[in-house]
Design a protein around this nucleic acid. Structure first.
Lengths: 247, 247
DNA sequence: GAGGATTTGTGCGTATGTATG
DNA sequence: GCATACATACGCACAAATCCT
């Protein structure tokens, strides 16, 4: 492992990323204890202060905890497996992780549809859409932040239902959509921006998995566009191709 | 856009990443010209020196080119749409991007299967597997780096065929696998490590999309495990659920 | 319990990198 | 290009908590 100096990324951050990735992957012992600061400094070929800066950053993220005289220990975190399939429903997916899957409504507004939304939902220029922002929690921590777009006229009653039930599926049903299928999912990754760091309570420099989803009713008409952000170190997206085919 | 100070990532690098992502996404004009250094400095709320450091880094990466008295211009690069489905074939996917889809064999070794590989391929402890590392190029640039694992006995002839044809599908066919389906795809994101930065010619601190794939023959027996790394700023993964179901 | 080894926590001085004007 | 302020990284020393013999 050779680190990049003068790359614009501080050594302590590179080391923190390396350690974060190494946890649960052979770096820690059975007790979850990391190698000592001196040992890590030797391995990365840096000063112990630099290792300490990396560990301090990880401690701020609640990834590790230092105990004087004993060592530094990884705090076990459950990595959430988030399935992506034709029939993915957020609530059900979270139950599989023995977590509650409830979406809190952050905001609900109306706006004129932008170009990508118009394309996806097949709307005319100037069309009004309903924009719903939701936050989901797992284990009392923010897990995903989503923005959803719906044609405004048809889904007037949706926000209130989602607010009450915490479920978009329920909201759609109240507006006459008994069932729907996912048409397409796009996956990107990038650094989290300011607003996302705040909402998802992330560390600066955190990586996001960003999914873009199009849902259609059973006759193939697009009814919903969504974009969701997941903290990459908390979630693994899983595409089950057999499940997709099985319905 | 607010930048993160004291995050361990220098402002010039954050700005460089932001500009790289903005190219082909509204930042440049029709001629590929970026906003002036002064304008960028105003937008990011930094000193012009800092913007110049970011542009200098992008020029070293051959992403932009500065022309004295004219401005700074993006050197055109296409973002690759990479489909994920039950029947995804790398070569075909690359043709859809009007690029050649050829996998160069980096190495081919035999090793005892580690735990995840044993689980996926349903092997006994101590089983020997074939490990194949490949690199794919698009527009003369590295696009993805993959590691593939196969049961050793059955796929003895595979590496040589892949070396000649550049296609794993062809290699499998030569070993008696006429057709196969993707069972599962896992998607993660993380910072690129040293070796990956070198192989994919990335900038330090670059983000990777990492996919884990299990392929099965038509009777559902797992035959291949693969892990592929894509530069997140060059690729978008696209799950087409209808395609998945359609075969 | 005593003493030594190990491990984290703290302080200070110095050189270089980063960002500003 | 120059001057200034702060962040990063290093090296050395020592204190405090814990573990083992």
């Amino acid at each position: 492992m050779t680190l990049q100096r003068q790359s614009g990324v501080a050594l302590w951050r590179q080391i923190a990323d390396e350690i974060r990735g190494g946890i649960g992957n052979g770096l820690t012992d059975k007790m979850g204890r990391l190698p000592s600061e001196a040992e890590l400094a030797r391995r990365f070929d840096v000063n112990r202060h630099t290792v300490r800066a990396a560990l301090a950053a990880l401690a701020r993220e609640r990834v590790v905890e230092a105990r004087r005289g004993q060592g530094t220990f990884a705090l076990k975190k459950n990595r959430i497996a988030y399935p992506i399939g034709r029939r993915t429903r957020f609530s059900a997916a979270m139950r599989d992780n023995s977590a509650t899957g409830r979406s809190e409504v952050i905001s609900s507004t109306k706006e004129t549809a932008d170009a990508p939304t118009r394309t996806v939902l097949r709307l005319e220029p100037g069309a009004i859409v309903l924009r719903l922002e939701t936050l989901s929690m797992v284990d009392g921590e923010p897990f995903s932040f989503s923005t959803h777009w719906f044609e405004a006229g048809r889904f007037e009653a949706l926000p209130e239902i989602v607010r009450q039930t915490g479920s978009i599926t329920a909201g759609l049903k109240a507006c006459g959509v008994d069932d729907y299928l996912r048409q397409e999912t796009r996956v990107d990754a990038r650094h989290a921006r300011d607003a996302e760091i705040e909402r998802l309570r992330l560390a600066p420099g955190a990586i996001l998995l960003v999914t873009g989803v199009v849902n259609c009713d059973l006759s193939g008409v697009p009814i919903q566009r969504s974009r969701s952000c997941f903290a990459a170190d908390r979630a693994t997206l899983i595409v089950d191709h057999l499940d997709s085919a099985g319905s």
